[in-house]
Design a protein around this nucleic acid. Structure first.
Lengths: 324, 324
DNA sequence: AACAGGTCGGACAACGTTATCTCAGCTCTG
DNA sequence: CAGAGCTGAGATAACGTTGTCCGACCTGTT
């Protein structure tokens, strides 16, 4: 910057003014500065600039589960889209659903002075964020609310989606319905179970505990649990899968066994049309989840006050599979 | 930091020393500092720290095409993995294959003083990076080499994979082979075409231009191009798809037409086993592409000298589809 | 022609941290 | 017991930029 000032024959401050586009600066002088900048290939050090000025770092952090999972990478895409519109950089980190790692990453990002954080909170306690929020870092939780701290969240309408899927299955006359879920520690799963349970109660029925698996973490586990249910004396005639991976596991089991059963579940995915069995899916626009979260975050960063809000994304029902 | 020094009854510099773990510091004094830090909830400003010190910002940038594409998000996952091992943050940006956008993003990241950049170079000129590289920013290109600038790259062995796939199809007796490719402006596509052409020449055959589509950018376009080839008087009995999306388009066309044809192509994907037709795929470990690129980048950041290198990832042949 | 008002440029300090230098005080050695 | 050598802590400057303030210059008005 000193070199630029010397080259242009002006003071340091004038270079700063030119770079920052101060309107009261003589255009001719500004042009001389820009010429010098071009000649010398000067590039402003953003870090130093944000140190002195009160301006933000124009960076937000995103803490997700696993980038390989299309659910998270879709959210990242939506988040990036909005961040880009705000001229903001996106630092993405993966906490693998471990709250200690999440805390380490979130605090590291705060030390980097990110303007805000978007977090998929892991099972555990997020109260470690309180001091940072008091110091002015905005936080928005995605998919689930944080624990021990009050902040905005953008979530999926799990209860309604589960209720709709279950009602559909019951109306079709199914009475034995297998649920392929994950651990009930996760709120999202509990909500989906609650929605199903409500639909059952409305139909004057109760859920059979033997038809509820809470171990369908991946396709293989879902297959195993499905097979176990098919082996019961009174096997299910319908299955509800907690997400795309569970659906794959269920269909895998059915195809292997040559069994026929109604399959419904959550989350649409690119290849769903190729599934060898018809499925009905409650689909959420996951990219939109990222967009909404980021939009809310930038609202807060811009100074929007008020109580924390919870936004719920709607779902759509789609028919997939049985592609020949 | 001043507050911490006051609270602990030491000088500013001693706080700095404690925070940075300077070994010559009296442990009792350090403990007093840490106690003060806990009391006050002090957190170091990393931006200010990197300003004065010669240390790096512990941040790298990744410029990809589109986060929604699992190819890119897999690379991001591999990159993140290695970055994490190096205690480094990852800023991801999407240039959507536009070189102007790529330049803007890359230079913005340089102004953020990233230690290095991993770039999927768009078709165009990357010489804008030269000044930054001269100033010490390391650059590694992924998937394709940059133009107008000399830097490391990590790439896929496209020619060999294409050669293997094409030889396989020819050995099976196919003589009419349809190629579903994208624009030949992209080096990767040219390499895949070159591999196929070499296999044909070895078999004493030449490619029929009418069986080469350079418009199969997405599944729908691939379907359209496949259908057009199937309508020829002498339609192909085999198809080679340039990537997973082309494969989906080809299979879609075959299923819709009720046609039988051999299908081979590039890139494995999670759902490939559900494809309703058997396919043979040349699969690259894309996560590994991200890992290798990041590893090379950190080597350079650590000061590894020497001429730019080109690394090529091997492929494996996998059988997929025809799932019942 | 003189003065008021406005505009633009430059000196200086500051952002939060670390590097360098210096010095006090201790220990060890001869 | 004196002096050399070392250790640990503080004072000061510096990183690259921007905010504040003041002064110089210019313009327009009377």
């Amino acid at each position: 910057m000193n070199d630029v000032a010397r080259e242009a024959g002006v003071s340091l401050k004038t270079v700063s003014r030119a770079v920052n586009g101060v309107p009261t600066l003589d255009p001719a002088l500004a042009e001389r500065v820009f010429a010098a900048i071009r000649t010398l290939g000067y590039r402003r050090n953003e870090l130093a600039a944000t140190l002195r000025s009160t301006a933000s770092t124009a960076t937000i952090g995103l803490i997700i589960g696993d980038m390989r999972n299309s659910f998270y990478s879709s959210v990242a895409a939506g988040t990036y889209e909005i961040a880009r519109e705000h001229g903001t950089h996106l630092i993405t980190a993966s906490a693998e659903e471990q709250v200690e790692l999440e805390q380490e990453l979130a605090l590291a990002l705060c030390q980097r002075r990110v303007d805000g954080l978007l977090i998929f909170p892991a099972v555990g306690d997020q109260s470690y964020l309180q001091p940072e929020m008091d110091l002015g870092t905005s936080v928005v939780f995605l998919d689930r609310p944080g624990t021990g701290v009050s902040a905005d969240s953008v979530r999926l309408d799990n209860v309604a989606a589960a209720h709709t899927l279950a009602s559909m299955v019951l109306e079709e006359g199914h009475r034995r319905v297998g649920l392929l879920l994950d651990t009930l520690e996760v709120l999202t799963i509990r909500e989906r179970l609650d929605g199903v349970r409500a639909a059952f109660e409305e139909a004057g029925m109760t859920l059979d505990d033997r038809l509820i698996s809470t171990t369908a973490h991946d396709p293989e586990a879902a297959t195993k649990a499905t097979v176990a249910m098919l082996d019961l004396d009174d096997p299910p005639t319908a299955f509800i899968g907690k997400n795309n991976r569970a659906i794959i596991g269920i269909v895998d089991a059915l195809v292997t066994r040559g069994a026929r059963a109604r399959v419904v579940g959550f989350d649409d995915f690119e290849m769903s049309r190729f599934l060898p069995r018809p499925v009905t899916l409650a689909s959420f626009d996951v990219v939109e989840l990222g967009r909404r979260g980021a939009t809310r975050l930038f609202d807060r960063i811009a100074g929007s006050a008020g109580e924390p809000t919870t936004e719920r994304l709607p779902f759509t029902i789609v028919q997939r599979g049985s592609y020949r």
